[in-house]
């Protein structure tokens, strides 16, 4: 049987037009090359791409329920321009309450993060304090009080930026 099918395949292949013989290594090469060129051209490493993907999922899943497994992030070239193509299967849209809840959760998360960061900065200040303590302890105390203010202002900045992003997205 094996011999017969071998002969049949060889003969059939001979009479088949070449275009029908399926995509071989060419399409593999083209696809690999396209991806690697996009990375070269945009300086986006696979790690950054993965991060971008993750953040996009986080952002979008505040508003819609997504099938995260099937999300595709690709680059496509149209002439000179490179387009970022995001394909996401949406399971369902969330209602307003859910969206608000998600936004609140997000805001809480951010606050927690900021607190963590503040603590870290405080700690590092304490360490640097130890070094300079002998010289001028009074100045250090003013430094410490100024840091939370700085953090607050940077927090405001962050919120502004995220609002801008929302606008451009829409």
């Amino acid at each position: 049987m094996g011999l017969f099918s071998d002969i049949y395949n060889t003969v059939a292949k001979f009479f088949r037009p070449q275009e029908e013989q399926g995509d071989a290594s060419k399409s593999v090469a083209t696809n690999r090359l396209k991806l690697v060129l996009m990375q070269d051209r945009t300086n986006l490493t696979p790690k950054i791409l993965e991060q971008m993907r993750g953040e996009l999922i986080d952002l979008l899943s505040r508003y819609v329920e997504l099938d995260k497994e099937l999300l595709e992030l690709n680059f496509e070239q149209e002439g000179d321009q490179v387009a970022l193509m995001l394909s996401i299967p949406v399971i369902r849209a969330k209602d307003e309450e859910e969206i608000e809840a998600a936004l609140k959760a997000e805001a809480e998360k951010l606050e927690e993060k900021i607190e963590e960061l503040e603590e870290e900065i405080d700690n590092s200040d304490v360490i640097s304090d130890d070094n300079i303590e002998e010289n001028n302890s009074e100045e250090n105390s003013t430094n410490l009080t100024s840091t939370p203010d700085e953090m607050n202002s940077s927090k405001n900045n962050e919120q502004e930026i995220s609002f801008e992003e929302c606008h451009t997205e829409q």
Binding site: Q18, E19, Q21, G22, D23, A24, S25, K26, S27, A29, T30, L33
Partner: peptide, 11 residues
């Protein structure tokens, strides 16, 4: 190119 083993000119 015909047997799809090489990228074509257009590609």
């Amino acid at each position: 190119i015909k047997s799809n083993e090489m990228m074509s000119v257009d590609d």
